[in-house]
Design a protein around this nucleic acid. Structure first.
Lengths: 110, 110
DNA sequence: GAAAGATATAAGTCACAACTTATACGATTG
DNA sequence: CAATCGTATAAGTTGTGACTTATATCTTTC
């Protein structure tokens, strides 16, 4: 499943927003999502699976609980894709800072 | 249709990549996409409609032809959403440049 | 002005993703 | 060790979005 497909679902986007605040157990995520979207526990669990499989989230076991965290890698890919359009609104001075960043990255490589 | 759903389709992403280079007629887009994805002209036209309806593309008439351009607005929204995760990979000096941009924007408002 | 060109819409088909309920399964607790 | 908790998987249903072919609607050209 492509990164953009993963982000296409509002529930998954919301889960990522929650994880952006820090590590959360499956059950805690389920609580919030059920309140906001009225879907079943398995539905949430399936979304978590998609997030795992697509690399957006990592899990670790803590007893019976599963603790989820964001994995930045695919988000960074998405950011890179969108970045190619940044010039369309990033005129003037903002573009300068962007160039600074880009230039710095290039220099790192060499 | 939500912005991320629009970007979920590889054909639409490719069309936006093409439009990023500049204005293109429907027919020119069809040519490229057909070569790369082997889908019919109406299929491409329907994707163009989605891009129009969701605000990612603008059209103007030129005789019988329709000339398409990128509209940055929804892409900027997407960028803003992804931006909230930028801290996850944007450590160190890169973050500085980002902060410069953010700071500048705030100052513009006030 | 009829034919051909450029593009869009209509209508129908089909695969798939997002649910549901039911259940499995390891960890915890009394 | 039986009951309960926390979470995941299985299996089935269903709505929808991405196609297809056929056709409509303007433009241009001869």
């Amino acid at each position: 499943m492509h990164a953009f497909d993963v982000l296409g679902d509002p529930v998954r986007r919301r889960i990522l927003e929650l994880l952006a605040e820090g590590e959360l157990a499956s059950g805690e995520i389920v609580d919030v999502i059920q309140r906001e979207f009225c879907i079943s526990q398995p539905a949430v669990s399936q979304h978590l699976r998609v997030l795992r499989d697509s690399g957006f989230a990592n899990v670790r076991a803590d007893g019976a609980r599963r603790l989820y965290t964001v994995d930045a890698a695919p988000l960074q890919e998405v950011d890179a894709w969108v970045g190619r359009f940044r010039g369309f609104w990033d005129h003037k001075l903002d573009a300068l800072a962007t160039e600074i960043v880009r230039g710095k990255r290039k220099r790192k490589k060499s």
